[in-house]
Amino acid sequence: MTLLEIKNLHLQFQSDEGLALVLDGINFDIKKGETLGLVGESGCGKSVTGLSVLRLIPTPPGEITEGEIIFEGENLLEKSAKEMQNIRGGRIAMIFQDPMVSLNPVYTIGDQIAEAIDLHQPKGITSTWDGVVEALDSVQIADPESRAHNYPHQFSGGMRQRGMIAMMLSCRPSLLIADEPTTALDVTVQAQVLQVIADLQKELGMAVILITHNLGVVAESCDRVAVMYAGTIAEIADVEKLFENPKHPYTRGLLGAIPRADRDMNDLAIIEGSVPNHVNPPKGCRFHPRCKEAMDICRIEKPTDVDLGEDHIVACHLYG
C-alpha cells in the first residue's frame, strides 16, 4: 500500500544569482513499512525533498511551484499551518545530520521527549514520563531513567542521535525521514544507529526515507533506492536490481567510483567535471555534460521516466 506519493514536484529558490530550480519535477512513492534510500551528491536535492514533505522549506526564498505530495491519501501541500504542525512529529518525523543542532541545549533530553509526547498524545502510553523512559530504552540507552535527566552535552555523539531517534519515534510516526543520520558518526557508531533504526522500523511498521550520500549505507539498509542528480531523479529500482544492473550512466558511474573496503580495485570509474549550478543548469538532460554516452537528443530534450518493468524506472534517452 502506498503511504506517500510525490508527483511532479517542482521547487525553486530565489538566490542572489537568480532563480534556482532545485527540484525539477520529481516523482516517487513509498509503501508502508518500506525503506527508500534517497541518494545523490551534494546539491542534488535530496535534503530539500525531505524538507518539502514536511513543508519546512522557508518561503520565501523557496517556493513549491508545481506538484503534489500525497500522504495517507491527502495532499500535504493543501494543509493549513496548524494541520501541518500536527503531522510533523506526529505521523511524519524527521531526524537530521547533526543532533547537536536539533536538540535544545538548555533542556534535558527527557524534557524534550516529553514535550513531543505531550504535544501529540500517542496511543498506548500510560504516562508521559513512562513514554520518555520507554523511548530511550528502545534506542538502547543504558539506564534510561537517570539518563533522561541529562542535558544534550552530557551525551556522546552517537547517544545524541539515538536520543533524537527516541524523541521522533516516541509518537509512533508512520513515516520517518532520516537526513544523513549517521554522516557525522564514526563507523562503529554508525553501525549501531542504523541497527537501532532498522529494529524500531520492524517493531513499529513505519516507512523510512533514508537520505544519504553513502551508497554503502544504502546497500545495507534500503529496500528501494532513488538516485538523484541535480534536482532530478535519474533512476529508481529495488536495491538489488539497482546495484546489480544499474541502467542510468550516472548510477553506473557512481557505483564504480566508490573505493571498496572488501576488494582490491585497480581503477575507479571517473565521472568528469562536477555537479552543475542550479541557476543555469544544462539544457536537456542535466547530466549530459558529464555523461560519456551523451547523444544529440540529450542536449535538447529532458528525458522522461521510462518504466523498464518490475518498478525499475530510469530517466535516460538511452532507454527512450
Binding site: 549501531q192 544504502v218 538489488e240 546495484f243 572488501d262
Partner: peptide
Amino acid sequence: QSLLSIVPIPDPKLRHRDRKMLKGEI
C-alpha cells in the same frame, strides 16, 4: 576485525554477512 566487518559495502547481497558490532564509543 570489527571495523572491516561493519564498514558498509555497496553490495546488497552482502547485507546479511556476519558483523562484529562494537558496544559504546571511543
